[in-house]
Design a protein around this nucleic acid. Structure first.
Lengths: 272, 272
DNA sequence: ACGCCGCGTTGATCTGGATCAAGGTCGCAG
DNA sequence: CTGCGACCTTGATCCAGATCAACGCGGCGT
């Protein structure tokens, strides 16, 4: 089935829905098939998190799923975008590219993050699936109408946008003022923080996680070249700040050490 | 009167209001004294822009003005912030600072921009007045209550926050991937765009404006040192891209040339 | 008038990260 | 098995921008 889905975006018909979601969930989360919101993995953090049951039913009626394969472009900068969506599973990126090809990642979208902008019909950045991605989509028109009627959605979107703005500003400090080593350490701290989730970090905590990004994607995130990313990984490994199992598996023996290397004094800063 | 206001924040009493606003307005905008919203210079772009007359009356009741002198800190990162505010006149900055003193500007607040975040009681960045600044303030509690009752405010805040997020992402491309020369040219384009306002730029347009920032502030904006900023100004002047009259006055003989130097293909990108 | 201070410029030198150039490893198709 | 392509690492060299240092200018307080 996965091989059948081809290279291009596949809008799932309802008849395909349960099966496809089953596939996606087992790939990414090991969850059961579920075309309804009540057992959605992101229901408590997504745009719909604060909706009342009746609001949720309205949303459920107009939602549809789309899946994207790793590497696939969801939408190009400047293109018409007639939907908004929540990332359900997988990782997507927002990137900006200059005419000569220099590119900068400007958003890393993880499960529950919201893609798209009500009130505008073109995107100013490329949206790309980094891993296989499942998105919960709403036609923009319908979503905008919902927003006016259900203040909980507008309110939640405001809170999420403000959080993203704070994260973007933290990211600006990283891009403008941090060294390559601090950038890598900061990125690892951000990913580590996501893996810990809400759990309060303990002194000298040990953490392990898989990198969802290639070296090239990390370079685009951090405003570096892949060579520099690679060298800094080697250096951090040599200094015992991290242990690498294969290319993607990272073990952080001492979180405090990593945070010190990142030039971060407050772990809660490290939001994606 | 100005000299009487001292080094610290002055909360204007209503009796002082008319006179102080008169002073501020004449300094920055040459407008008449005006303690009411109906002839406020930012009424069409600020947080209150979409309010109905009755909503505006409610806002007017709870608003108060504060003025800050150039160089004065409005609030420090981490401090308790019990108000939100619109910049009425002047320029303020948001900056982040690392322990060792490296600092990065993360926001440039111009008239009509909104400072503060409903639903959070500490700021993650320093807010500083760059010029003399007049702010239209609301107690956070009261403002949050208003937001729930008057959807126009929440709606406007969402739109403004989304715009700021887009601007932050444009800024991230600048910080991560642009050369020093492109950074300076981009900054000039941003300021030029603000001065043009809504007017559509014409081919090869000539533009002149005053820089609201010192070399140091520009360096913090762009992730550079002051020496590099200075050298790039000299270089752009030498190449005829700009003409400098004194330190602050900039003339751009050909806007298209400047935009080309900025590595910007779409002038509308250049939002602050 | 004087000296000081904030701000900006310019020159000399250094260096972190980019660039250019090989290779290495792994998975997969033929 | 072999070859190929995607991804990563490592080395050599270069250079844009940082750093260190000196100086110019104008406003302001004494």
């Amino acid at each position: 089935m996965l091989t059948l889905s081809g290279t291009f975006a596949v809008v799932l018909r309802y008849t395909q829905l349960e099966f496809n979601i089953g596939v996606q969930m087992s790939l990414h989360e090991g969850l059961k098939p579920q075309p309804n919101c009540s057992n959605c993995p992101i229901q408590h953090r997504a745009i719909c998190a604060q909706c009342e049951p009746d609001e949720l039913r309205l949303l459920e009626e107009i939602k549809y799923y789309r899946s994207f394969e790793a590497g696939q472009t969801v939408i190009w900068a400047g293109d018409h975008m007639d939907f908004v969506a929540s990332v359900v599973t997988g990782v997507a990126t927002l990137t900006k590219t200059m005419e000569d090809g220099r590119t900068q990642m400007v958003g890393l979208m993880l499960p529950s993050d919201f893609v798209g902008r009500p009130g505008r019909d073109t995107t100013p950045y490329n949206v790309t699936a980094v891993t296989d991605v499942l998105m919960c989509c709403f036609r923009k028109k319908q979503f905008e109408a919902m927003m006016i009627r259900t203040p909980h959605i507008a309110h939640r979107l405001l809170a999420m946008t403000l959080d993203e703005l704070d994260a973007a500003r933290e990211w600006m400090l990283l891009l403008g003022r941090k060294t390559a080593r601090e950038k890598i350490a900061s990125l690892l701290a951000i990913i580590a923080r996501r893996d810990i989730g809400a759990a309060a970090p303990r002194q000298g905590q040990r953490i392990a996680f898989d990198l969802p990004l290639t070296r090239a994607a990390m370079a685009d995130y951090l405003g570096l070249t892949i060579e520099t990313v690679s060298r800094q990984f080697t250096a951090l490994r040599g200094d015992g700040v991290i242990v690498l199992n294969g290319l993607r598996r990272v073990v952080v023996p001492n979180l405090d050490r990593l945070l010190a290397e990142a030039g971060v004094d407050d772990f809660t800063e490290a939001r994606v």
